[in-house]
Computed example of a mutant assay.
Amino acid sequence: MDNVLFPILITIFLLAIVSVAFVATRTKRDDKVSSASPKSSTATLERTTEAPPGPGAVIAPPAEPGTGLVEPPVEVPGGQLGEAPVAPLEEAPGEVVEGEVEVLEPVVERATFRNRLARARSAFTGALDSIRGRGAIDQDTWDDLEEALLRADVGIAPTTELLDSVRSTVKSKGLTTADELIEAVKDEMKARLGGASIELNESAERPTIWLFVGVNGVGKTTTIGKVGKRLADEGRSVVMAAGDTFRAAAAEQLGTWAERCGAVLVRGAEGADPSSVIFDGVAKGEAIGAEFVLADTAGRLHTKSNLMDELGKVRRVADKGAGSVAEVLLVLDATTGQNGLI
Score class of each variant (00 low, 15 high):
D138C: 12
I288A: 03
G126D: 13
A118H: 12
R121C: 14
L307W: 06
E205A: 09
A295Q: 01
G79Y: 03
K284F: 07
N115F: 10
E327G: 07
G195Y: 02
V33H: 11
P158K: 00
G155L: 09
E95C: 14
V107K: 04
D244K: 02
A232I: 07
A16W: 12
E75S: 07
K304H: 06
F124R: 04
V86K: 03
T223A: 01
T141K: 13
M1K: 04
L332N: 12
M240A: 10
E310W: 14
T223G: 02
G225S: 08
V70M: 04
T44S: 09
V325C: 05
K171Q: 02
R26K: 12
I288M: 03
P93H: 11
Q80N: 10
A16P: 04
P7I: 15
L254K: 07
G133C: 11
T222H: 12
F13L: 13
R167W: 06
S275H: 07
K313E: 04
T169H: 04
D187K: 00
T256C: 12
E46K: 08
V20Y: 14
T221E: 00
K186E: 00
G271E: 15
I137H: 14
M308S: 05
D129L: 08
S40V: 06
K229C: 01
E105D: 09
A184R: 00
A334W: 02
S19H: 10
L341G: 14
L149T: 07
V97I: 13
A36Y: 11
G217Y: 05
S34V: 11
K304N: 05
A43N: 10
R260C: 08
P55V: 13
N339T: 10
G94W: 14
V239Q: 08
R114W: 09
D31F: 14
A184K: 01
R315F: 15
A298D: 00
G135C: 15
V86A: 05
P7N: 05
R26L: 07
V166T: 03
R26A: 08
I288W: 05
T112F: 03
L330A: 13
M308F: 06
P73E: 12
A196R: 09
D140C: 14
D296T: 08
K284Q: 03
A51C: 13
K313A: 00
Q80H: 05
G289S: 09
D31W: 15
T11H: 09
K320E: 05
G219Y: 05
P274R: 00
E105N: 05
A24S: 06
I224F: 03
D31T: 15
G99M: 09
A196P: 06
D129M: 10
V238D: 03
F279L: 14
E327Y: 05
A87S: 05
L69C: 06
A251W: 07
G271C: 10
R29W: 09
A136W: 06
A318R: 09
D244L: 02
